[in-house]
């Protein structure tokens, strides 16, 4: 099946263009836009790990190594589309327009971090595995019923493909031909379990065959491959062509979360030998003459400042309101819950 589902790439590891049919589309503007998002989420990600190490943030799920997959996919979406992330997809949601302060707040245990920005349709990150896939299918189904051209995307990892909800979501997506993109980031590991122990299939993309669904396996560390593949899948969905499964083969450089040590289950030296998706894009830009040191440096500085400012705002955020413990459980609090709240607050002099 690796032959039937070859890994599609536009760039090779060194950033040379392999798919020359796309050369004209790989403009400086696009390169810079993608680089900017990738650098921004990496800056966020590294800062979040540091904050966690200093006890200033809760347990955090790093995404370094997956920037191309997350940015390339989210950058292909439009404002009215729906995004259903997991806990490792804040790179995608930030690219889509999620607020950075709220993203930090989420990792600091604040429910405010789950509330999407303004009118953007960003679902709170799914913590159970694969459960968000049927949600995305349902939201896309709703768009189809309303006759719009908006689409939904579900993010999920390789481990999720072992869950029933992945298969149930795939089946509903194809039976009802909903405008959804099932975006898999195959980063090689479900916490400590390698993909070879996760499944007997050679690829994840082939699983779509069983559902009569188009699918493609791509290099998830080649941001152009991700972006142009997504554009095609999004266009198919918008024009009534139904769902697509995309397997973006990528690599998580670090730990599953800040609570585990990946050197226990794999050789981290080898892990770091992998080509960095940002370096690959930079190599491409250098080769094309798109890489202006000063411009890049300015982007880096801007992101440093943005992240530092977001941390400041997050840390200065008003303390949690105990009313929020109760008030959003139901549209109107049942009497008994209201009594529990009143008793608790009264006993504490509120």
């Amino acid at each position: 099946m690796e032959t039937e589902f070859p890994i599609y790439r536009i760039l090779d590891d060194a950033g040379h263009v392999i798919d020359t049919s796309k050369t004209d589309l790989l403009t400086k503007d696009l390169s810079l836009a993608l680089f900017t998002h990738m650098n921004r989420i990496r800056t966020f990600d590294r800062k979040a790990i540091n904050l966690q190490r200093q006890g200033r943030l809760g347990t955090y799920a790093p995404l370094e190594g997956q920037e191309a997959a997350q940015v390339g996919s989210a950058y292909a979406l439009q404002d009215k589309d729906w995004i259903f992330p997991t806990y490792r997809d804040h790179g995608a949601t930030l690219t889509f327009g999620a607020d950075m302060v709220r993203t930090f707040l989420y990792w600091n245990g604040r429910v405010e971090g789950c509330v999407p920005t303004d009118e953007l349709h960003i679902f709170p990150p799914a913590v159970p595995i694969a459960t968000q896939i049927p949600h995305a299918v349902g939201a896309a189904w709703a768009e189809k019923r309303k006759g719009t051209t908006h689409v939904a995307i579900a993010y999920f990892g390789d481990g999720a493909t072992s869950e029933g909800d992945f298969h149930e979501g795939m089946n509903f997506a194809s039976v009802f031909q909903t405008p959804v993109i099932l975006f898999n980031q195959n980063n090689g590991y479900a916490i400590s379990v390698p993909i070879q122990k996760q499944m007997h299939s050679e690829t994840i993309a082939q699983k779509a065959l069983a559902y009569g669904m188009p699918s493609i396996r791509i290099d998830g560390n080649d941001v152009f491959a991700v972006y142009f593949t997504m554009l095609e899948a999004v266009e198919r969905a918008r024009s009534g062509g139904g769902p697509t499964l995309i397997e973006a083969v990528t690599w998580r450089f670090g730990a599953h979360t800040t609570a585990d040590d990946p050197s226990k289950y794999r050789d981290q030296e080898r892990s770091h030998d992998r080509v960095d998706p940002i370096t690959r894009l930079e190599d491409f830009m250098k080769e094309q003459g798109f890489y202006d040191e000063q411009e890049i440096e300015a982007i880096r500085n801007r992101h440093q400042q943005e992240v530092e400012a977001a941390v400041k705002t997050m840390e200065a955020f008003p303390p949690p309101d105990v009313n929020d413990l109760f008030d959003h459980t139901y549209a109107t609090l049942p009497d008994d819950l209201l009594r529990q709240k009143t008793d608790y607050l009264t006993a504490r002099g509120n």
């Binding site: 729906w82 896939i133 049927p134 949600h135 995305a136 299918v137 349902g138 189904w141 768009e143 979501g169």
Partner: peptide, 26 residues
């Protein structure tokens, strides 16, 4: 058939997709 929908035999699928429908206007 558009409103009274025979679904696949898939309880998590029915409830899961209904969440997506419910948050998106249905």
């Amino acid at each position: 058939e558009d409103r009274i929908i025979d679904t696949p035999l898939s309880e998590a699928g029915i409830v899961g997709t209904s969440i997506g429908l419910a948050v998106n206007g249905f």
